[in-house]
Write a protein that binds this DNA or RNA. Structure first.
Length: 286
DNA sequence: CGCCAGGCTGTGC
DNA sequence: GCACAGCATGGC
């Protein structure tokens, strides 16, 4: 390990195993995470976070370590119906992922599950990406424009999402994505939905996990269940649930949603790699 | 065999 | 605007 960061209100396991980033795995107490062409190793011991593979500034930004998480969680914990999720997952942070990898990841995520998403992204990197030097066989995530072979896309197990990836790859450039990230939240959300395979939920995932719009509230089946249980009168349609969340949680909606998501899954015994099996089901197999 | 998974698209009303 | 079917794939 090359550097150390003293953290507060941070839990590496919760952050990396909560379905924000998929090309990561835990082995022998330390995590290996891939973001685009960087391979980062991380180990947490109490408040001490050891890292290598990237500079401190990158690690801080990627893991959201400079966000005022404590303030947001304090506000959310005052909402009684949210308190169990906040207490159970304290230290979970919203990451700041690479927009292109995040976009592709969540196009793959539709009507799928986390272990399968991880496998597909690992295969995508192997089929289309270049090996990371000194990465032990781990490949960089393919650049925008390089996902240009439909048959090869289909071979990664993404099924009907192969056409979405193919078309989005054709339309998307690094510059276009960056420009979308500079728009106001609602406009960025609409602009993302111009890419095939991107609807309300995927757009909100990119807004939250890559662009840092903390009011974004992705509504998937787990968040829907959690909200229906906690706020049964706020409506059942996705649009109603999202409106309710923005009204109830305001600028902290993103954190609220991610805590609800992960807590709900913890309560049902479903986490990335099913707990002990991190490595068998997880991504980044070399 | 069935049902489910961090939903989206096209169609019909 | 709304609801609803179809969609590929793999795990259980």
């Amino acid at each position: 390990m090359h550097g150390t960061i003293e953290t507060t209100c941070f839990d590496l396991d919760l952050t990396l195993a909560s379905g924000q980033v998929f090309r990561c795995r835990k082995e022998g107490g330390s995590w290996t995470v891939c973001s685009r062409d960087r391979l980062i190793r991380l180990r947490q011991d109490g408040p001490r976070l050891e890292f290598s593979g990237a500079g401190e500034a990158f690690v801080r930004r990627f893991l959201g370590l400079d966000d005022d998480t404590a303030d947001a969680l304090e506000r959310l914990e005052r909402i009684p119906r949210l308190r169990p999720a906040i207490r159970a997952c304290r230290g979970l942070r919203i990451v700041r992922h690479d927009p292109w990898e995040c976009l592709v990841s969540f196009i793959c995520s539709t009507r799928s599950n986390i272990p399968k998403i991880a496998r597909s992204l690992d295969l995508l990197a192997r089929r289309f990406g270049r090996p990371i030097s000194g990465g032990g066989g781990v490949c960089a995530f393919p650049e925008p424009g390089s996902l240009d072979d439909l048959d090869l896309l289909r071979s990664t197990g993404v099924g009907y999402r192969a056409e979405y990836l193919f078309e989005t790859n054709r339309l998307c450039t690094e510059e276009r994505l960056a420009a979308i990230g500079r728009l106001p939240y609602e406009q960025a959300r609409e602009a993302l939905k111009e890419f095939p395979g991107v609807g309300d939920k995927v757009a909100d995932c990119v807004c939250l996990f890559a662009f840092g719009f903390r009011e974004a509230f992705p509504v998937d089946v787990w968040v829907r269940r959690a909200m229906l249980a906690l706020y049964p009168r706020s409506g059942t349609r996705e649009s109603e649930i999202r409106r309710a969340a923005l009204r109830l949680f305001g600028p902290d909606a993103g954190y609220a949603g991610q805590y609800l998501f992960h807590h709900r899954r913890l309560c049902e015994g479903k986490t990335l790699g099913e707990g002990k099996a991190l490595g068998r089901g997880a991504a980044l197999s070399a």
